[in-house]
Design a protein around this nucleic acid. Structure first.
Length: 671
DNA sequence: GCAAGGTC
């Protein structure tokens, strides 16, 4: 029988696909020298033209090769850093990956075909090419095909095994391009910064390198940007009209439709007109059903945002813990952009497993007994992995750490919440006309909590009851006055906000964003500090009481409580639950960003534009509009110019950075 | 001693 070699991107996929194809459990054969990769052997009929084959299914563990400069460039002072823009680059297999490469070389020998099962994304295409190169070392004529699959459902995998595609060289070339540019630019700029600043003070000898990276700098830029917004903020006074009416022993506070105005005289005039009217009139009473949507299936970015918000872990920690849960088989693959479950997926088995929990088992059973609703679909699908979900039940107290227990619990609850019904309620809005002005108040009655019963991370509660009002009813308000206040500075960035910004601006990937944040902390560009004082306002602060009471009905997932009418900063931002750490730049971080800004470059390295430009160029490579050589050349030219510009301003760089070296190393900025 | 991207 003819032999075929199949290779997946990671061991878990090799195992899953092998078992699906074989239709039974296939024993794993270990690979000498490699802890994680295994070989699976079985017979399988691929259909024409391959038909019945002897299959060896194995995997790599991500990229096989790394890219680095010719070793002669190891010495930072032996060559000018600009030489790194053109220095020879080697692509080679690192020692840890040698056993994996050797396994492929060995198994390719005697195989007539290589069938590649890497993830269907750009990196996956590149990994496929690395695998092909390894196989060709021992079998130059091996036929190479690629499988295209977007999940590991049995039927889908069987389908995929019968269609043979070509590796996409263009996508692989785009990855090589990113690799080369990030290396050349990152290394050249890092050496420039580190060496320029080293002579500024003897204190520098024990400093970490002052690194530059195409993701590190925009990440730092976001933090510094917010820092200046906070520092440069000047409060503005405002005024507004507040109306309160007592009815059936209840205080009902009506808020002004205009919100607030920054001109006191105008408010006084409008207020006098209200008073002159004496009577306020109920113009409309609206009662309508409202709902709070259950969450979407969980992506990596959401896991990181929610983990930092609800569990108070930093995103790097969340990912480390999630990877460990994945490796032990408790949860599905934790790196995914997909927020929709394939309609063909049977989710019941995963819910059944959770029914034995003492904490949420009863709830899970309720879903099985009829409460189940297939999850909503978000807009993202990476065509490689399903949303993050629990695959097996584990008693939380048997997990290794408290963090593992909490992350696991979150993933399970999130999954059960996804499979539940929306929370339902009824909202009442009372519109009021008072003289020329309009006011309103609203109340919420939660009727069915549904998913909220298993998802304590979100709140949606009934407001205090409103007394009945009838349309057309008039009354003289118990109290009406002008309330003054002033706008307050925004808060420093929090980690979930930073992740959101990075995600929106394409800085890093779902799997690397947490690492970039961790890296700029390690470089002492930013630090996380505990929030000081009791929760700051959300952009306004009032002089008198808390105007505007109670909850308002909410559509689309935003928490309902205390809708202050302003920015929709969602649950967990302060919220009276301790407050998240704030990300603040260090003196060094601010100095670097401000200095780059002062260079007046066409495109600032501290902004996401350059990274976005690169993404556009990479897309052009994938579409065949440009070649790797062209893109590397034009990009390198851009950075050569920036390099030249920054070289002229070394004196200024030293100047803006020196005070901090000369003063106490741990000198802090004023926050 | 440099980057960012995979994966364990």
């Amino acid at each position: 029988m003819r032999k075929i070699l199949c290779v997946a991107e990671k061991p878990s996929i090799a195992k899953a696909v092998a078992n699906h194809l074989a239709g039974a459990h296939v024993p794993a054969r270990s690979v000498t020298g490699s802890t994680y990769t295994k070989n699976y052997e079985f017979d399988y009929n691929f259909g024409p033209p391959w038909n019945q084959c002897r299959v060896v299914f194995t995997s790599v563990a991500g990229h096989l090769t790394v890219t680095d400069f010719d070793p002669k460039y190891k010495n930072w002072r032996a060559f000018p850093a600009t030489e790194l823009f053109e220095a020879r680059i080697d692509v080679f297999v690192k020692d840890d990956n040698k056993p994996i490469e050797r396994n492929i070389e060995q198994e390719a020998r005697g195989a007539f075909a290589l069938f590649i099962w890497t993830d269907c994304d750009r990196e996956g295409e590149h990994i496929g090419m690395e695998v092909r190169n390894a196989a060709r070392k021992t079998n130059a004529n091996i036929q190479v095909k690629r499988a295209i699959f977007s999940n590991i459902e049995r039927a889908h995998i069987i389908e995929a095994s019968r269609r043979f595609h070509e590796l996409d060289e263009k996508q692989a070339a785009a990855v090589e391009t990113r690799n080369e540019l990030d290396l050349r630019i990152g290394a050249a700029f890092t050496r420039f910064l580190t060496l320029s600043l080293q002579k500024v003070s003897p204190k520098l000898e024990d400093r970490p390198v002052i690194s530059y990276g195409s993701c590190q700098f925009p990440t730092l830029g976001f933090v510094v940007d917010r820092y200046w917004k906070v520092r440069n903020f000047t409060p503005e006074p405002f005024w507004k009209i507040a109306v309160m009416h007592q009815k059936q022993g209840m205080d009902v506070r009506f808020t002004w439709k205009r919100g607030h105005l920054f001109d006191r005289m105008t408010v006084v005039i409008l207020f006098e007109r209200c008073l002159a009217a004496k009577h306020a009139r109920v113009s409309k009473v609206t009662k309508k059903p409202t709902r709070k949507y259950r969450p979407l299936p969980l992506t990596t970015v959401e896991l990181q945002k929610n983990g930092t918000r609800f569990l108070r872990l930093d995103s790097k920690r969340v990912m480390t813990v999630a990877e460990s849960l994945y490796n032990k088989g408790w949860i599905s693959y934790p790196r995914t952009e997909t927020d929709q479950f394939d309609k063909a997926t049977n989710l019941r088995p995963f819910i059944e497993k959770q029914a034995q929990s003492t904490q949420w088992g009863q709830y899970a059973q309720g879903l099985l007994d009829g409460g189940f609703q297939f999850p909503r679909s978000g807009r993202n699908n990476d065509k490689a992995h399903p949303p993050i979900h629990p695959v097996n039940f584990v008693f939380p107290n048997t997990l290794a750490s408290d963090d593992e227990r909490r992350v696991y619990e979150f993933i399970v609850r999130r999954f059960l919440a996804c499979c539940s019904a929306d929370a339902l309620g009824e909202s009442t809005t009372i519109d009021l006309t008072y003289g020329p002005e309009r006011f309103a108040t609203s109340g919420l009655t939660v009727l069915e909590k549904n998913y909220l019963d298993v998802y304590p991370y979100e709140r949606w509660e009934s407001s205090a009851q409103l007394p009945p009002f009838a349309e057309g009813e008039t009354f003289v308000p118990t109290e009406a006055n002008i309330v003054d206040g002033k706008t307050t500075a925004p808060d420093y960035l929090t980690e979930p906000e930073l992740i959101e910004l990075m995600d929106r601006n394409g800085i890093g990937t779902d799997a690397t964003m947490a690492e970039h944040i961790s890296k700029v902390k390690e470089r002492e560009y930013i630090r996380a500090v505990a929030r000081s004082g009791a929760g700051a306002g959300e952009g306004e602060e009032e002089g008198q009481g808390n105007v505007g009471r109670g909850a308002r009905g909410s559509r689309g997932g935003r928490g309902g409580r205390g809708g202050r009418g302003g920015r929709g900063s969602s649950a967990g931002r302060g919220g009276g639950r301790g407050g998240l750490d704030q990300l603040v730049p260090t003196q060094l971080g601010v100095a670097l960003i401000d200095w780059y800004e002062s260079l007046n470059l066409d495109k600032n390295v501290a902004k996401p534009f350059l990274r976005k430009d690169l993404e556009v160029q990479l897309k052009a490579i994938c579409d065949g509009a440009k070649t790797k050589t062209q893109v590397v050349q034009t990009e390198v030219e851009v950075y050569r110019e920036i390099y030249a510009r920054q070289s002229q301003q070394v004196a200024l760089l030293k100047a803006v950075c020196s005070p901090m070296w000369l003063s106490d190393r741990d000198a802090r900025l004023q926050y």
